[in-house]
């Protein structure tokens, strides 16, 4: 177990050290959500006045939750890009050679992704608070929102790690990114679920990301929250894609 933790720490150390000395590496996972936040919360703020929009903490907080979860998810996807890059340039062999248990490598990538997601999340919180976001949830609610964001990050990083370890090429980037992009934007992004209509409403109803976004909005606004449903789905998705990633590690081992 100690060796597993050594490997996990080593891989996470590398990822964190790279970001610490090359902060520009955070830009892709920060710029996109910030753009959405500024564009939606600023440009679409009048959506908050639409009849039927009854989110108590205002449109900025409503959008912030989506942007936070989006940043967490994209941060996870970028971890997959990094893994694919490691396979292309041979660095993954260094890790595979040194690790008694190769699952420690996966855990290290996941931990590194969470540290980066937490950093981006803090920056987003700062920007949102400066822009006047109203937070009505308690400290416990906010902690719940952070845990939810980290679970989304874990799920996305395990999804993309599974793809990266199977395809072992940076050209697999669109395969990692596109499904995450689609599933996020087929959820109630701009307005509550009740205000959606047509096919997008039908899709949003069965989209597993919808309860996560709505649950996050409940947390930031201090509204009634269904922890079993929201965390159940988040943990379930995380476990599903963890299994997918573990099988990806085995696939990479077989391929050499």
């Amino acid at each position: 177990m100690r060796r597993f933790l050594d490997v996990t720490y080593g891989v996470a150390y590398r990822s964190t050290k790279k970001v610490a000395v090359n902060p520009q590496l955070l830009l892709p996972s920060l710029i996109f959500p910030l753009f959405f936040f500024v564009a939606f919360a600023g440009g679409l703020s009048s959506v908050g006045n639409v009849p039927g929009f009854d989110f108590p903490s205002g449109y900025t907080a409503f959008q912030f939750v989506f942007v936070l979860l989006q940043a967490s998810a994209f941060g996870g996807v970028f971890t997959g890009f990094g893994i694919a890059g490691d396979f292309e340039n041979g660095f993954s062999r260094r890790l595979m050679l040194a690790a008694p248990s190769r699952l420690g490598i996966l855990a290290g990538y996941a931990l590194g992704a969470m540290i980066r997601a937490a950093t981006v999340g803090v920056l987003l919180f700062v920007v949102a608070i400066i822009s006047g976001m109203q937070i009505d949830g308690s400290g416990v609610d906010l902690f719940g929102l952070v845990v939810l964001a980290l679970l989304v990050n874990l799920t996305a990083s395990m999804w993309s790690a599974g793809v990266a370890m199977r395809l072992r090429s940076i050209q697999a980037g669109p395969v990692m990114q596109l499904p995450v992009f689609l599933i996020l934007f087929l959820a109630p992004v701009y307005v509550p679920l009740d205000l959606l209509a047509g096919w997008i409403e039908a899709v949003a109803h069965i989209n597993p990301v919808t309860p996560l976004i709505e649950g996050g909005r409940d947390l930031i606004s201090g509204s009634d929250f269904q922890p079993l449903l929201v965390f159940g789905i988040a943990i379930g998705l995380g476990a599903l894609f963890l299994a997918w990633a573990v099988r990806g590690v085995r696939s990479a081992e077989r391929a050499g």
């Binding site: 490997v7 080593g10 150390y13 590398r14 050290k17 340039n89 260094r94």
Partner: peptide, 30 residues
């Protein structure tokens, strides 16, 4: 893997890390 060391055909190094960072990573991994 615990008993062997290997330097493979392409020196698999991370261009963004220093030599000392690589040493720290490798000593941790091992």
């Amino acid at each position: 893997r615990a008993s062997i060391g290997a330097a493979l055909q392409e020196a698999a190094l991370d261009p963004l890390l220093t030599g000392r960072d690589h040493m720290r990573l490798q000593t941790t991994l091992q």
